[in-house]
Computed example of a mutant assay.
Amino acid sequence: MKYTNAKKILPEKLIMEIQQYVQGETIYIPKQEKEYNHWGSLSGGRQWIDHRNAAIRHAFKTKSNIEQLAKDYFLSIETIKKIVYSRNK
């Protein structure tokens, strides 16, 4: 997180207004919701997990058992159950 001195970017009138609520403390101003990226959207991590989960579902439908899938994908049995029994996207 980057810190910026308010005097460098905000008008004096706005600083005076903010000082009525907080003085000498660090405050966090979040991005607007439209600016947020979903987890993994930039790195490709979300796509990788979606692809892996689809492969697990396919293997389960073609007669692989949950215990073997857990070993093959290095995941817990509970995680495999969540993947194969959840609704597909």
Rank of each mutant, 00 (worst) to 15 (best):
M1R: 09
K2I: 09
K2S: 07
Y3Q: 12
Y3F: 04
Y3G: 10
T4E: 07
N5C: 07
N5E: 08
K7H: 06
I9K: 01
I9Q: 02
L10T: 00
L10S: 00
L10G: 00
P11T: 03
E12C: 01
E12F: 04
E12A: 05
K13L: 07
K13I: 10
I15H: 01
I15V: 09
M16S: 10
M16Q: 13
M16G: 13
E17N: 12
I18F: 09
I18Q: 02
I18D: 01
I18C: 03
I18V: 13
Q19R: 09
Q19S: 12
Q20I: 06
Q20R: 14
Q20D: 14
Q20Y: 04
V22A: 05
V22E: 06
V22N: 02
Q23W: 12
Q23R: 11
Q23C: 12
Q23M: 09
G24K: 02
G24Q: 01
G24V: 04
G24D: 04
E25H: 11
I27L: 13
Y28A: 14
I29C: 01
I29D: 03
I29G: 06
P30S: 08
P30Q: 04
K31R: 11
E33P: 14
K34H: 13
K34A: 13
Y36Q: 11
Y36I: 12
N37W: 11
N37C: 09
H38S: 11
G40I: 03
G40C: 03
G40P: 04
G40A: 03
G40R: 01
S41N: 14
L42F: 11
L42V: 08
S43C: 02
S43M: 03
S43P: 07
G44H: 08
G44A: 05
G45Y: 05
G45P: 01
G45W: 03
R46S: 14
R46A: 13
Q47N: 13
Q47D: 15
I49N: 09
I49P: 02
I49M: 13
D50E: 10
H51R: 14
R52A: 06
A55W: 01
I56L: 02
R57G: 02
H58A: 13
H58K: 14
A59Y: 05
A59R: 08
A59W: 06
A59C: 08
A59G: 05
K61L: 07
K61R: 15
K61P: 10
K63E: 12
K63T: 13
K63S: 11
I66H: 01
I66A: 02
E67W: 04
E67Y: 08
E67H: 12
L69R: 00
L69K: 00
L69S: 02
L69H: 00
A70W: 01
K71P: 04
D72W: 08
D72E: 14
Y73G: 07
Y73P: 05
F74Q: 14
F74G: 14
F74Y: 15
L75Q: 11
L75N: 07
L75P: 10
S76K: 15
I77S: 04
I77G: 06
E78R: 15
T79Y: 04
I80A: 00
I80G: 00
K81P: 04
K81A: 01
K81R: 15
K81H: 05
K82I: 03
K82T: 14
K82Y: 08
I83A: 00
I83L: 01
V84L: 00
Y85N: 13
Y85K: 10
S86Q: 04
S86G: 06
R87I: 14
R87M: 13
N88D: 09
K89M: 07
K89F: 03
